[in-house]
Nucleic acid binder design. Structure first.
Lengths: 193, 193
DNA sequence: ACACAAATCTTTACATTGTCAAGATGTGTT
DNA sequence: AACACATCTTGACAATGTAAAGATTTGTGT
């Protein structure tokens, strides 16, 4: 294996280059050929690794989602109890996208949100960040010994997610910075202030 | 003025044709040339009415937003009091986008959310649906004689909006239909079930 | 009614882009 | 060494956004 870039990890290089472009010029500035030339390969080289542009974008989204998940997991570390973890996760959820508005637009934009999920999966139930939120919430109920019906649980999870996601949406779609704070209460109220 | 299509209202025809394409093939299938040929004009004809593709898209978004506003306004008609109006509006907010998921993706997708707003305006404060929600909420406070600080009011408005918008987002981004119900309580809890 | 200016539309042209096909090059395996 | 395979390049093509130049229609003032 030569130590030249293109042997062994072009696939990952393309993903990284694509994400860099997103950061600099948004999804509008993303073209297969630019990504290729950023990696110093010919314009058709990506086709050895991705079926088409959609596939590249899918891999990029998966990669960004991984980074997002790392942050969410990180937010729950060193929290005294699960309630704090929930709150911290909500805060981080919004703050991540405030720091990376281009990621928000990229992930939740355009036609193919679910491109990086298997076709038999459904959003948001099999979307990792949602799953993490759900798990943490259920752990929280167990820890506090709170009994709720399945239906009620689903509703409150959607509530939590919708609040965080909706707020992130507002923050990312506006130029304005949105100050926020997140608290959860037992009976299912969600406060963002 | 001949009664041929292209004299007098090509501008509106282009907007309508564009929206029709969005409904059929999503934003991916939208090209200036297709819009032009749908109106039976040459591919460069749109440039007499729109500076570029972005401008057309902006006008299309404004048009879709108008339809959305009509529905929101309609939802508040014939409601006994402002609280009911608020609830009805929230329901309609989500239901509109459940019925028109392509509109959601179109409006809140891609790079240029704010394309159809003046540059000196800010999202969501000058986004008509948000303004309407805000006004209705303030009217509700007044009607119920509820006193709240400006800050608290802003928080709760954001809360309302984030819940509705986040839920619409979930519903539109997933293939799954999301059943929901919307209730507001005085102390700022938002329930969607 | 006429002339002229502005708006509107067409034609032509060009650069960018996604994708395909055919071939070259390198890698690993037997 | 030989062969299969993955990877990369080159060349081509159609779709697209956009600019330039010209044609056509519309409106306005005289």
């Amino acid at each position: 294996m030569s130590d030249h870039y293109h042997h062994g990890n072009l696939r990952q290089a393309l993903i990284d280059a694509g994400i860099k472009i997103i950061n600099e010029s948004g999804e509008a500035g993303l073209s297969l050929r630019k990504v290729a030339s950023a990696c110093e390969v010919s314009h058709a080289a990506p086709y050895a690794h991705f079926r088409d542009k959609e596939a590249l974008i899918g891999a990029m989204k998966a990669s960004v989602t991984d980074r997002f998940m790392e942050e969410l997991n990180d937010a729950t570390k060193d929290q005294p109890d699960t309630e704090c973890a929930l709150v911290a996760m909500g805060r981080r959820y919004v703050s991540f996208f405030i720091r990376h508005p281009d990621y928000f637009r990229f992930l939740f934009s355009s036609q193919n949100l679910i491109a990086h999920l298997q076709t038999d999966r459904q959003y948001p139930d099999d979307y990792p960040p949602f799953t993490l939120l759900k798990e943490t919430y259920l752990k929280y109920l167990k820890e506090k010994k709170i009994k709720k019906s399945k239906k009620e649980q689903e509703i409150e999870i959607l509530q939590l997610w919708a609040s965080a996601h909706g707020l992130a949406s507002i923050a990312c779609m506006s130029g304005v910075s949105v100050s926020f704070d997140w608290e959860t209460e037992i009976e299912g109220e969600v406060l963002l202030r």
